[in-house]
Design a protein around this nucleic acid. Structure first.
Lengths: 250, 250
DNA sequence: ATCCAACTGTGTACAACGTATACGAGGTGT
DNA sequence: ACACCTCGTATACGTTGTACACAGTTGGAT
């Protein structure tokens, strides 16, 4: 059952079904359902993304969606891959420009569709768009004489950075929508919290707070990306590279 | 309503209610509920974490939990902070050792409690344990003459890396539990997917696959952390540091 | 000793969710 | 004209978080 579910998702993502010749003309279609679902999620967040809500956006009923999409989890898979489809493939070029391009494309995608980072980490049936984008990112570091597992590790490190920053960003967006209050106003209004910020318990926090360090934060995406690329440069341009095999996590 | 909910969470996290003098002796307690919930989530994943399931683990009923915890989302807040409470505070010392210590503590926490990374990014009411740990991490880079917002940016970059890698790790764990199949077996068994891995569409992917790059991956946590710390060293030890203000995302 | 108020855990109930099933209407191939 | 497939709809079921009313239990005030 789980097995067949997964295979169904694969087929759906990589080989969308041909449209039938018989029967009434469909008012809906898979791409319309996916598009409507993305609009709902963009505007109202993933919590509002119910089958009934998507159907409403299409002027239809919940069960009609099941003619075009096997279920909600497959719909999410399709939405994710559609979002990847909106990104551009990393063009050939120097490694640093390529990785930066890839990171910026992911970042733009997450900014446009923050719900992607709210999908728990569960949903990750890779679709063709996600795969081609990643393939192009691998290509960006393919001319450096790296071993294949190093190519994967380098691109993965960049992707993880964007994931991590995106997660925090998505949280800000969601909180602001839910509360209707801007991030900054909300935190300053949380007096029940600030009472506990005493120098003896949180010396650095209170110091940074008092000197305004929280009020003018650096750009997390840009800062972290620049550091990571600097660090990758050290690795890529050094003579002998250290090998780090996976031992953790199995 | 949302407002008061949040304040309730704050009070709950930072000032747990004194135990009452009257009334029957409680069979349950807030910490027992939180502990049972963590055990359920550790063993069965966040999907299995229902109020009824937690109650069952305690030999009680779902509604009994509400005497000790205001609701599920507050329970999650408490679980997250309890997990932070299991970590050690970063001890004083050189910046690189300190950041590495902090990253490894987070990593150990995520490995023990992968459900933390499945909680969508929604739940982030910071509790006292999370705050003291982060405060100690700030202290690790407090002697370098950084401006306060730079201190925040450096620690945040490290935390985001662990988040990003953790997310991928949690996904592996979840998939393996759900399917009962190891990560590697599952992927190799996904023939419906491999059919689409043709050199013309995914040249790098197929190349890396054929040369075994996916079979012996580098440790994502160690590799990315080493690169990031190298990049931070470039930043921290350079004379003039570039300033990157936040413009993106508001 | 008595009573009240606070507190405990339980049973029932409800709304919202994903979705299985059964249906009638619409359109193409034969 | 018929058979057959496909479409959208209506109804219904199980599961979820949790509001509410209730009954049993205890400590302090009287």
């Amino acid at each position: 059952m789980k097995q067949s579910d997964r295979d169904r998702s694969v087929r759906l993502l990589w080989a969308p079904p041909a449209e039938p010749t018989r029967g009434p003309k469909a008012a809906l279609s898979q791409s319309r359902v996916v598009g409507a679902a993305m609009e709902v999620a963009d505007a109202e967040g993933v919590d509002a993304l119910t089958m009934r809500r998507v159907a409403e956006a299409l002027g239809s009923t919940a069960m009609a969606l099941y003619r075009h999409v096997p279920g909600k989890s497959e719909l999410l898979d399709l939405m994710v891959d559609a979002a990847w489809g909106e990104t551009e493939r990393t063009p050939p070029g120097p490694w640093r420009e390529g990785l930066e391009f890839f990171a910026r494309q992911m970042w733009a995608m997450y900014r446009a569709h923050p719900w992607m980072l709210q999908l728990t980490t569960s949903r990750v049936m890779p679709g063709p768009h996600a795969m081609t984008r990643r393939d192009a990112a691998y290509a960006a570091v393919s001319q450096l004489g790296l071993r294949p597992e190093e190519i994967v590790a380098v691109v993965t490190a960049v992707a993880h950075h964007v994931d991590g920053v995106g997660r925090a960003m998505a949280d800000r967006v969601r909180t602001e929508r839910e509360t209707g209050v801007s991030e900054e106003d909300w935190w300053t209004g949380r007096e029940a919290l600030w009472e506990h910020f005493t120098p003896d318990r949180l010396p650095m926090m209170t110091h940074i707070w008092n000197t305004g360090g929280f009020e003018r934060p650096l750009d997390e995406f840009e800062f972290g990306l620049a550091r990571l690329l600097d660090g990758l440069a050290v690795f890529l341009e050094s003579g002998e590279r250290p090998v780090v095999r996976r031992e953790t996590c199995q």
